[in-house]
Nucleic acid binder design. Structure first.
Lengths: 203, 203
DNA sequence: CTGAGAACTGGAACGTGTTTCTATTATGCC
DNA sequence: GGCATAATAGAAACACGTTCCAGTTCTCAG
């Protein structure tokens, strides 16, 4: 049976295996930060992570799985950082704009890394559904938290409207990211576009 | 000097060349319709179009350029079909929904083709900016026409708000397409999501 | 018609993602 | 400790996008 999903941190038995997984993702992020999508070459990742090519493929069944898994890990870190303090802003629009701006600036600080992760995300096919789903959850969780503001409590069910709003905003955000990553818009245009969209949707 | 953009129909001198270009795009669409992105193999396209591989690369400098150019041609056809009669619907929301639904259904009838074209579009980098721009223009033109309805006259300048609305909607549409193409949502969910988004944005 | 330059053909060759295979090493059970 | 099994290393091989090149055919100015 061909493997179709990446090995997650949790399902790896030994400490040595968890460490291999970590080294692989570290190597991926490191190479991606320097040279973007094209620089993440499977042989290079394997060498930098000090594992054999076959092992790399045992952990991540394709380059796309590898990059999307790296994206998921980055998101976890972002969420952990953002998760501690309250999101500033008096109404949902301000808070959402704040979160988007902050996240976007973070990404723009590492353009090559962002390019690599975004392209992988957009190129992913159905075999990567599991990994993609993880990313989607984190993203909508963040946006819901921004929408609800102080009223937010871990596990609160968002309303249908909030779900829809979060979905539309993340769509716009992704599209903006793609057009930035592919050199079709500048960082300023991305910020403007996001603000405009938020105003349009949240009045 | 390496070629960076596809040869357009207009800049091809002879009838033989225009015919080669047409054959290449026909072959591309034909292969994509059958097997999607992966089935569009450059050697296969060249053979089916009855040109040498080198010639194919003279016309389209990469597989992505080729597929995005095919997308542009498809859009022209759609626009030509849609362009004749008035768009039904009493308010902008209805008209936009109508256009989106119609376009989406068309795409869903050819899932493999749609998958190939969408993935190419999303994977394109800045060297494909020219071809992408063409597609973007057609898309926003269609949406603006839907927004303005009867008031639409060829060449009317849309308001800033209309531009922003068209942009957000096309973002959502693209994201919806991607998630459908990658098997993360069903056709029904795509329609629902689009309708929800339109309602949200156009009140 | 003729010659020069551009376009095209056919095919080899290269790079990188992916697969496969064998030998070696680590792990867990008795 | 000793064995069965799984995991890993190392390396070759394959697939397809892309590049390159030598020879041929087309185009068109003079």
């Amino acid at each position: 049976m061909a493997t179709v999903s990446s090995l997650t941190y949790e399902e790896l038995g030994s400490a040595a295996q968890r460490d291999r997984r970590r080294r692989i993702l570290d190597a991926t992020v490191s190479l991606a930060s320097k040279g973007g999508f094209d620089a993440v070459q499977m042989r290079a990742v394997a060498e930098l992570a000090d594992v054999a090519l076959g092992t790399l493929y045992r952990y991540f069944p394709s380059k796309i799985h590898l990059l999307v898994s790296a994206l998921a890990r980055q998101f976890e870190e972002t969420e952990a950082n953002l998760g501690r303090r309250a999101i500033p802003g008096d109404d949902p629009a301000d808070r959402v704009t704040y979160v988007l701006t902050r996240a976007t600036r973070g990404l723009q600080r590492e353009p090559h890394l962002t390019e690599a992760l975004t392209r992988a995300f957009m190129f992913a096919d159905s075999t990567v559904a599991g990994e993609i789903h993880v990313v989607g959850l984190k993203l909508t969780a963040m946006l819901n938290r921004a929408l609800q503001g102080d009223a937010y409590i871990e596990g609160t069910q968002p309303t249908d409207r909030e779900i829809a709003v979060a979905r539309v905003i993340s769509d716009v955000w992704l599209a903006a990211l793609v057009s930035w990553v592919t050199g079709r818009t500048t960082t300023e245009e991305v910020s403007e576009h996001l603000e405009t969209a938020v105003r349009l949707i949240l009045r």
